Computed example of a mutant assay.
Amino acid sequence: MSSATLPSDIADRLKRDENGLVAAIIQQHDTGEVLMLGWMDDEALTRTLTSGRVTFWSRSRGEYWRKGDTSGHEQHVKSVAIDCDGDALLVRVDQIGAACHTGHRTCFYTDISA
């Protein structure tokens, strides 16, 4: 993974895991619908903040991927917030098409409540 330089006010607040990653919850900006969870390191977050499109670090592939580059299902960033503990990000987006790789609008389509 690359180590980008985030502004210190952001970098100092992040609590990364042992792999340098922080969870990024992706939410539809106007409806509040939770779309997916991805992982970001400093480089992915920098790319997300500077490009206006969400970039993740793929733990399974070991590479960066910008949501929608192959599927066309882009995520356009509206805002990014850090949670109170600094161990998660909330990225509010305008989702184009499905967020889930299965073709569903959201990755959270399986209800397991009793």
Rank of each mutant, 00 (worst) to 15 (best):
A81F: 02
D17T: 04
S51L: 11
I96W: 01
E74L: 12
A24V: 02
T50H: 13
N19L: 13
V80E: 03
D111H: 06
K67A: 10
S79A: 04
S113H: 05
C84R: 08
K67M: 10
R13W: 10
D12M: 10
S3L: 15
T110N: 12
Q95M: 10
P7E: 12
R16Y: 12
S8A: 14
L14E: 11
H76Q: 08
T55S: 13
A44W: 03
G32M: 08
G52I: 03
K78W: 01
M40G: 02
G20I: 13
R53P: 04
A114H: 07
T70R: 09
I112W: 07
A24T: 02
T106F: 04
V54C: 07
D85S: 12
T31H: 14
A99D: 00
D85L: 11
A99W: 04
V91G: 01
Q95G: 09
G72L: 07
H73M: 07
E63N: 15
T31D: 07
S8M: 13
C100S: 09
I10P: 00
E33T: 15
L37C: 15
H101M: 07
V80A: 08
V91H: 03
S113K: 09
E18N: 10
D12G: 12
G62T: 14
R61M: 14
R47T: 12
T5N: 13
T31I: 12
K67D: 10
L21N: 03
A114F: 01
G97N: 01
D69W: 05
S79L: 03
G62Y: 12
T31N: 13
Q75F: 02
G103S: 05
S8P: 04
W65G: 14
H101C: 08
L45G: 00
W39N: 12
S113I: 08
I112R: 10
K78M: 07
F108K: 06
W57G: 07
F108Y: 13
G32A: 13
L89F: 04
S71F: 01
L49A: 07
W65D: 13
H101W: 02
I10R: 04
T50I: 14
R105G: 03
V80I: 09
M1T: 15
